[in-house]
Amino acid sequence: MPLDELLTPPDRQQREARQDHRGVALLLTGLPAAGKSTLAHALEARLLALGGQCLVLDGDRLRAGLNQDLGFTESERQENLRRAAEVAALLVEAGMVVPMAMIAPLASHRQLLAERLGADYREVWCRAALHTCERRDPKGHYALARAGKLADFTGVSAPYEPPQTPALILDCDTRSVAQNVKRLLQWMATERLLGPSLQRALSSH
Rank of each mutant, 00 (worst) to 15 (best):
L28V: 02
A34E: 02
I169E: 14
R135F: 02
G52P: 05
P2V: 01
A94Q: 15
L91F: 15
A88P: 15
E134P: 02
P138Q: 00
R110I: 03
T132V: 07
G30V: 00
P166M: 09
V56D: 12
A128K: 11
T154V: 09
D11Y: 02
D173G: 11
M102I: 15
Y160I: 01
D173W: 12
L28D: 00
L57M: 09
G35V: 04
A201L: 04
T29K: 10
M188D: 01
T132R: 08
L130E: 01
E79N: 08
A42R: 10
A40Q: 07
Q199H: 01
A167H: 15
L193S: 03
L113K: 10
M188Q: 04
A88K: 13
A151T: 06
T29H: 08
E191G: 04
Q19W: 10
G51E: 08
R18W: 05
H141W: 12
A40R: 06
L6G: 02
E86D: 15
Q186L: 11
C126L: 04
M1L: 06
L66I: 14
S75T: 15
G51S: 07
L48W: 05
H131W: 03
Q68I: 04
D60M: 09
V124A: 10
L168N: 14
G51N: 09
L202R: 03
A88Q: 14
I103L: 10
H205P: 00
V97C: 15
D137A: 02
V156Y: 12
A49H: 12
R63I: 08
L112C: 08
A128P: 12
L194F: 01
R63T: 09
D20P: 00
L194K: 01
A107G: 15
V181P: 14
R135Y: 05
T8A: 10
P9K: 00
L202C: 05
V181Y: 13
R82Y: 13
L62F: 15
H131E: 04
Q53M: 10
M100C: 15
R122E: 03
L168A: 14
G65P: 02
L43C: 11
R183Q: 12
G71Y: 12
M96K: 15
D120V: 00
R136H: 06
L55N: 06
R18L: 11
R110S: 07
F153A: 05
I169T: 15
A201Q: 07
L31Q: 04
L27M: 04
A40T: 04
R135P: 02
T190R: 12
A114S: 09
R77P: 15
L170W: 09
I103D: 04
R15E: 01
T29E: 02
A147T: 03
M1W: 06
G52A: 13
E5S: 07
A49N: 10
L31C: 03
L144E: 11
G59Q: 03
A107Q: 15
E44F: 09
A167E: 14
T29Y: 09
G35Q: 07
L48N: 08
C54R: 06
L198H: 08
G155V: 01
R110V: 04
A158M: 06
R192H: 12
L28K: 08
E16H: 06
T154G: 11
R22I: 00
E123Y: 03
D137R: 08
R135Q: 11
G118P: 08
P159L: 02
R116G: 01
R82W: 14
F153I: 05
R63W: 11
Y142C: 05
L81N: 10
A104P: 09
R116I: 06
L48S: 10
F153C: 08
